[in-house]
Design a protein around this nucleic acid. Sequence first.
DNA 1: ATTAACACTCGCCTTCATGGAGCGCTGATC
DNA 2: GATCAGCGCTCCATGAAGGCGAGTGTTAAT
Lengths: 351, 351
Amino acid sequence: MENAAINLDARARTLLRTLIESYIRDGQPVGSRTLARTSGLKVSAATVRNVMADLEDLGLIQAPHTSAGRIPTASGYRLFVDSLLEVREPTAEEIRAIQSGFDPNATTQDLMGATSNLLSQVTRMAGMVRLPRHRNVALSQLEFLRLGERRVLAILVIDGKEVQNRVLELERDFDQDQLQRMANYLNAHLAGKSLHAVRDALLREMRDVRENLDAMMLAAIDLGEKAVAGEDPDDVVVAGQTHLLSYEELADIDRLRQLLEAFNEKREILGILDQCIRSDRVQIFIGRESGLDWFENCSVVTAPYSVDGEVVGVLGVIGPTRMSYDRVIPIVDVTARLLGSALGDPAQDTK
Amino acid sequence: MENAAINLDARARTLLRTLIESYIRDGQPVGSRTLARTSGLKVSAATVRNVMADLEDLGLIQAPHTSAGRIPTASGYRLFVDSLLEVREPTAEEIRAIQSGFDPNATTQDLMGATSNLLSQVTRMAGMVRLPRHRNVALSQLEFLRLGERRVLAILVIDGKEVQNRVLELERDFDQDQLQRMANYLNAHLAGKSLHAVRDALLREMRDVRENLDAMMLAAIDLGEKAVAGEDPDDVVVAGQTHLLSYEELADIDRLRQLLEAFNEKREILGILDQCIRSDRVQIFIGRESGLDWFENCSVVTAPYSVDGEVVGVLGVIGPTRMSYDRVIPIVDVTARLLGSALGDPAQDTK
DNA sequence: ATTAACACTCGCCTTCATGGAGCGCTGATC
DNA sequence: GATCAGCGCTCCATGAAGGCGAGTGTTAAT
């Protein structure tokens, strides 16, 4: 998509813009006469036809058949969202409505679910939220529980409220008392540090101070390393998939099935979201741009959210390419910001 | 549904049976001529027409329009599955295929997911599994972790492999040391008993031996009671909803949306499954019988599964009313039995 | 009771005609 | 050279007409 199309004169741009706006509103191909009237320009339908022919040559619009009006192509939408679109900032009202959906006392999981629901309800499309990376949050506590022979349950309390369980399979057996002492040792050394720092510390100690410690403490370090080694649960929360059934441009049953299956599998959704995590602004995929062909007629609007200035996740919506970008974009944008600050609020013990 | 229809003569029963079998196979209304030929009876089409008129009067079949063949009504299906159907028992082959899908080392959660997937793949419909009740399985271990002021994380290890976390909000504060001693006390008294027994024991002690214990042990009992008080997570695992998109008798978009939303909400699905938990055999809901009108054209086949003779959950499938009951019923039946025995296997620590 | 035969009823498909929306092109105008 | 009115043309959507086929209900004969 090299977009040599940038050098369109003002009139062509206006026409393209009104055409796409009209198509997004009504879902009908737009003809030259209507376009001439609604564009506000003082030109005749014939002139508009000439311009439209040019736009078609540039691949920005196309005619479904000889004598229908024109509809935007993927490139047309691209140009539209990149340089023609004027987003309608959400009113303070709307922001408050969204904000009231966040319960700062909820666990991260619940917060993600609520956000995802919120996105899908407000936009009437499918909402999705990538779980935040936890690498930089504080480890509050670490505990071991003996489940059976050589099987230990590691419990990580993160950030004072999040709890993660991990079952570890070990080479040798420890009794509960040994495990307890190991946990005490690790907690004394590590509590309060970020997971990232914890991991570094453990790896360093394993290398450096091997010989200076008794066997028990060595084992403790080993165990601790195992406990924090796993990645965060790699997951994404989606909601409102069923909204997509209502759009007739997605009426093809087979594609619809693929789409819904993608939501169940989550793998491809994850792939798409992860592509966006680097950007620091709202990002938009139109149609096949994401590389999946079952994405025909679908667009994705995403925005990363950050805590303390660091991007920790992405959220967004999926809907038909023919969506109201001017409404959806600011919603996604605001939601990302609000989620970020909801996560960033200092953990409260009140209540 | 009083079904005075039971007194059908043999011929009428044969005809109804072949009609429904034919309709299930082809999805086409069945006419008198075809029916006369395929039924195996030595009667003419005209005679068949007479019988069909009777069956229509009884409300067992109906004609979509004046001059099409007949299709079964809900009552027709009911009679069919109750007294006309001959199920095709699954071959040893198929049983082995299903059995190989169970990994006895998996956690209950994973086992449920696998079962649900299995059901949906084998039947090409939506599969669902009600989580088992845990009331009668052994409590292996109980642990407390102080999260913050008056907030305690209770960790229940059940059956040596299942882990449940519960956050408790308390009236007074304990330090970790106190919590540890309380856990020790409770474990010494309760480990190995069933959750049900544990709860009884705690309630009894709270009443009877109040005055004979020091304050700490009293608090411990109180805490333990809180920890095991909550119900099991009340949940159901579903899979393969998207299969339902492929059936043209469910092609109505609005109903389809309601159906998929029901799977997301899970509440109504749960209601249906819970209705079946009392029965000890395969149970079938046809069309609106379950009380939900968006269930038009859908049927549910369920079977309870039991561990050690006690029913602990239900599983089943949802699909179009026009499904191959003779294939689906034994599959659901066998899957329920296999899941029961997979859960009943003594917990193994090997690997 | 069973059945062959007949008339009749619908739904579905194809064909055909009609109307309308919209396009490209041309030639005139400024 | 840009703009525009006008013309002929293409295509879709709609609907009516008609034929076909499948299946029904009914009657009268066995």
